[in-house]
């Protein structure tokens, strides 16, 4: 059985170490926060906050307190606020230890595409290009194949890039792979998924 969304998020949470400052993307990456356990993790929201708390109780929403997805959130005892230039200064300065984000395609050389599909509505890259260029460790969490069954782990990305050679580790519903010299290396398979199945679902070179 491949991993489901929550199992993928739980596996991604294992990438985080005590004391890390981390940026989580929208979608499955957001769920990672539910699985950090006792680890002391500080979440960054790139619109200008370290120490992001959970959603507010009903009636306690504050229009001045939102995350990068524009959702109402809360602060914690450790929270600090800053402007967008400082926020991306810490991202570009390599102070954020890890970013966990979704993707449409990843190539075997670590190229990442997750911001636009030509011919479709283009909304913008937001902070994704800054994050993948600046953060120390970039972990992608995504389904191994698209809805047509085609591999999303490719020899070369077909979509416009978000970053070149930026991905370190990929966690999919089928397993975990690292970007290494010459291609991708299988780190582990999801429970019940064989290495042959994982290889068969992957277009990228596996070394």
């Amino acid at each position: 059985m491949p991993w489901d969304r929550n199992q993928m998020a739980a596996r991604a949470a294992q990438e985080l170490e005590d004391g890390m400052y981390v940026n989580l993307g929208i979608g499955i990456p957001t769920l990672v926060a539910n699985y950090v356990g006792d680890k002391d993790i500080t979440l960054q929201s790139e619109n200008g906050m370290l120490g992001m708390g959970p959603f507010p109780f009903e009636g306690e929403e504050d229009p001045d307190l939102i995350n990068a997805g524009k959702q109402t959130i809360t602060e914690l005892a450790r929270t600090s606020y800053f402007d967008s230039a400082m926020s991306f200064g810490m991202i570009r300065g390599g102070k954020i230890a890890a970013a966990i984000l979704g993707a449409m395609e990843v190539a075997e050389n670590g190229d990442l595409a997750n911001w636009m599909i030509p011919g479709k509505l283009v909304k913008g890259m937001g902070g994704a290009m800054d994050l993948v260029a600046g953060v120390e460790k970039v972990v992608v969490v995504m389904d191994h194949t698209n809805k047509h069954g085609d591999s999303k782990l490719l020899k070369e990305c077909t979509l416009p890039l978000t970053g070149k050679g930026v991905v370190d580790r990929i966690i999919t519903n089928l397993g975990v792979l690292d970007v290494v010299e010459g291609g991708l290396r299988i780190v582990e398979c999801a429970e019940g998924v064989t290495e042959d199945e994982l290889r068969a679902a992957t277009e990228a070179t596996i070394v």
Binding site: I91, D111, D130, A133
Partner: peptide
């Protein structure tokens, strides 16, 4: 890119006409 936009504003305010960044290298940007 969001950080590029913020830094372009900050730089303009600081009298810095240009700066180098990794963000966007190898992309359309």
């Amino acid at each position: 890119p969001q950080g590029t936009l913020a830094e372009r504003m900050r730089a303009g305010g600081c009298g810095i006409p240009g700066f180098y960044t990794k963000t966007g290298y190898g992309t359309q940007i």
